[in-house]
Design a protein around this nucleic acid. Structure first.
Lengths: 341, 341
DNA sequence: CTGAAAGCGCTTACAG
DNA sequence: CTGAAAGCGCTTACAG
């Protein structure tokens, strides 16, 4: 019985025109006479017509899909970026297909599937550490879809990207802590080779240097942005005979892990040690203590990356490599204070 | 110059067979002779062939897409559910298309687009409060794709769903608090008509009743699952002359909002008031105090919903309405203790 | 401004 | 077990 979905021929019959005219009236309204257009639109409405995207995409030789590679869907940091991407894409009539790259690092082959032109018209990567074999597929040029990095980027710089001003974030954190009187400032970093870690560290070190402060390598705790990494850093901090009085963390999550593990050991923040996070995720303002952190414009990061990608898709020739940098903002809350004398 | 992506005809030529045979060898390997199959697979490999999904889907009269309606992409509660859905769907070769329904409540028309059979082979809704007009499109039966609710469900019960045992969650929370000696137990609820709110409240009230404890309506703080709602409840709690000594919250977020706002007013948890959350999101174990809460199997919720949906898609006849209920677990941490005498 | 017709790349009854 | 051929529903040069 199933009344099948109406096709363009149904609308054409109803409107008394050809399918070509229906197609034009609906997707390029300015190319048909106004009266025709109105008739067609009314007929489409009446029939409850929706264009079949598989047919349209097949004909137009595109997929209508943008693949977004997310390092970890379970991390709240990414959700607002996705929201920004989705907004930009849905305006342009593209679907967002989200793929968690935890899979990639296990099965790179699986993901290179998605990077193929038959699957996606473009790619947004939120993960700078995609294996070279995956990326090389994307650079090979033989009809590979354009790729834009957002937040993170590929270390070799062969792709366009939208980033936060990470180095500036490191500088702002150090300025703030030094301004409060801290002299021994440590750091909980992301993975050693991560581009965010590197650029923020560069800002941290530059600012420390300009202030005449030294950085003690024993005060570097290397992590991976996770809650657990922060907790591990706390344990290491507790072992130190002369621990830093302030800490800059490469993510809010690590800051939370650090603070909570110290709390378990009866060491209060900021009384014993000041902590600055990075990201300003939603819970940061409601943590105890409320977290001083660098705010990243996550929604705009996603939105801009999507817009940049759409630009690359629309242009026939391959565009130059673009880098767009968005500013960060220091949000001072209650996890930082002057060191106890 | 662009070397175009290889098509099935390229593989056929390379393998010296017809396109029909290539198609069969690749998607129904058991229907061709082994030697043919091997030749074809080798040729496909050599050519770097990937099936064109638009063409396949057009021919098969399907979309290959499942639409997931998420109330708020920015809420970390949903991310793990999405991960579960994605795992189940990618196994079955479906794409997951995520749509934030914040848009829906503004423009219901926009979303009913997605619920149409030309857009999706099936729908997973994580939002029980979809407007009736949207749902009626989905029930109208004229080729509308099947829909499964996950976590939340539609109050009128006209759709299949996968849920947590919410009532049991309410009971476990009350048993725990009463066991600690609490007699005045309040609640921070979700929206009044929300199905989660209703079923958990039913569990709470049933358990209170069986324990011979009364529920004081002044101790009900109505919220909306957000951090801010929890903070507002804290302000209301502070106004009470005889406030409850323990509180059951319909989300971890509201628990955090409540605890943090109390902290700002110098009221410590659990010393002054015990708090139980719901969800067990990642930060719960690293909050200060670590949050006692009901663990929801979020990944499994998503995975099961996807599997159920795939079942409905595969069966030609329309299946009966199914309801699958997954157990919750009370995780006791540090936000609950005996009331101060 | 409009229509007839080709063709996007597949899959699948049908015939052998 | 395999192939020839039709057709999924569109869009778009091309011709008028």
């Amino acid at each position: 019985m199933e009344p099948k979905a109406p096709r363009i021929t149904d609308v054409a019959r109803l409107a008394g025109v050809s399918t070509a005219t229906v197609s034009r009236a609906l997707s390029k309204p300015e190319t048909v006479a106004e009266s025709t257009r109105n008739t067609v639109i009314a007929a489409a409405e009446k029939a409850g017509y929706r264009v079949n995207l598989s047919a349209r995409n097949l004909r137009r030789q595109r997929t209508g899909t943008i693949v977004v590679l997310v390092p970890n869907l379970g991390n709240p940091f990414f959700s607002e970026i996705l929201a920004g991407i989705e907004t930009a894409l849905s305006k342009a009539d593209f679907n967002m297909f989200v793929v968690d790259t935890k899979l990639v690092h296990v099965k790179p082959h699986l993901v290179s599937e998605y990077l193929h032109a038959t699957r996606a018209d473009g790619i947004i990567a939120l993960d700078g550490s995609l294996p070279g074999e995956v990326l090389s597929a994307a650079t090979s040029g033989n009809g590979a879809p354009p790729i834009i990095f957002a937040c993170e980027w590929s270390p070799r710089g062969e792709f366009s990207s939208v980033r936060a001003n990470n180095a500036r974030g490191g500088e702002l954190a150090i300025s703030h802590l030094a301004g409060l009187g801290h002299r021994r400032i440590g750091m909980i970093s992301g993975p050693k080779d991560n581009v965010l870690t590197l650029s923020r560290s560069a800002g941290v070190l530059a600012r420390l240097d300009s202030l005449g402060l030294a950085f003690d390598p024993r005060h570097l705790f290397q992590g991976d942005f996770s809650l657990d990494a922060g907790a591990r850093a706390a344990l290491a901090w507790l072992e130190l005979t002369d621990p830093p009085s302030a800490l800059f963390c490469d993510s809010d999550q690590m800051a939370f892990g650090f603070i909570s593990e110290l709390a378990r050991h009866g060491v209060p923040v900021p009384d014993e040690v000041s902590v600055v996070g990075f990201d300003d995720i939603a819970i940061a303002s409601r943590y105890i203590p409320a977290l001083t952190t660098l705010h990243q414009p996550r929604y705009r990061l996603g939105f801009s990356a999507a817009e940049m990608l759409l630009g690359h898709i629309r242009s026939t020739c391959s565009l130059a490599i673009e880098t767009k940098i968005l500013e960060v903002e220091l949000i001072i809350r209650n996890s930082t204070s002057a060191p106890k004398s």
